[in-house]
Design a protein around this nucleic acid. Structure first.
Lengths: 167, 167
DNA sequence: CTCGATTGCTTGAAGTATCAAGCTCTATGA
DNA sequence: TCATAGAGCTTGATACTTCAAGCAATCGAG
């Protein structure tokens, strides 16, 4: 399956390097940019905002911790800490799960929903300005496709396909 | 310049949302993946590794702090902390700047160079497997182009064009 | 020359991330 | 039905990031 010997690595070509560096630069800059924007306007980092969004879109504005972690692509541990912080802010509340006493729901509070309502326009504007305003429709499409492929390759295999809550 | 009223945000279209979510998923997954890979094999996070690479490529394996921060797209503060840690590892050393007594150079040590030599193949393999093996040449090119455009838009205007060290 | 503004970099505190270890509860199968 | 393995989530320690504040050296206007 692998014809190259292990001690002779295939380095990146010049063109591949350029692509890779562009990727690194863009992602670090954009990540920072959006973190700052949201920290300033919403008082939380980008990923926390994403958690609120995920909850807001879920039925009854609630998700099991594990499911939320998967949607957000983060570990349960990280999520636990994050939810603890959001709970302190009054934007999320925990609820026990009846059918499985180990389980916890994270529930978006009205206050949390309100924060989202108030800050979403600014955030969308920031994303639009940094990304969509700069790319042609074709470029947007290509970006989406490339990102989808990369994400698929990294997703834990068959992730989530066997979660009991999803029937 | 702006014909839309400020209180009527232009939401993302469905297709734009799909692109944006693919971007978020891919970047968080890949970032985590590479951080883990490098933490395991090289004992440092991805961005620290990038600092060593930047130094390795610089003349005399040394760069002014500010220049290094710009190349890595991070704040000086973050760089200060990072270099302190790398210094503790013996991979980087600081040197005073003769022509400007406020200035500091970060210099890659032989040990640091050796760490790079030893861990680069594994890292390149990880990048290749996660990114380049999954994208056609056209897709790679498109990804690079999109990322370049995004990065350009976020770069502090005329960044670095006026650094005295660069003449 | 001199003083105020700026540049280059660092520091400390507070917030967030990661890892391993832990707890409780559920499912499995003998 | 009971023990054991695993699932679901949390915790605490350590590392990293961020922000604001700080110090010292340089620049530039007068």
């Amino acid at each position: 399956m692998n014809t190259a010997s292990a001690d002779e690595p295939r380095w990146l070509s010049d063109e591949e390097q350029r692509v890779w560096r562009a990727y690194l630069h863009a992602t670090t800059l954009l990540d920072d940019h959006l973190d700052r924007q949201l920290q300033r306007d919403a008082g939380m980092p980008h990923i926390y905002y994403g958690l609120l969004v995920a909850l807001d879109e879920a039925p009854h504005r609630r998700l099991r911790m594990t499911e939320l972690a998967m949607k957000a692509k983060i570990t349960r541990s990280r999520l636990s800490h994050a939810i603890a912080r959001l709970e302190k802010n009054g934007w999320v509340r925990r609820e026990d799960c009846d059918s499985d006493k180990r389980g916890q729901f994270a529930v978006l509070t009205d206050e949390g929903h309100e924060v989202l309502r108030r800050t979403a326009p600014g955030h969308v504007a920031a994303v639009r300005q940094a990304v969509f305003d700069r790319l042609s429709p074709d470029q947007q499409k290509a970006l989406g496709e490339a990102m989808r492929l990369i994400a698929e390759g990294l997703q834990p295999k068959e992730a989530g396909a066997d979660l009991p809550w999803l029937r």
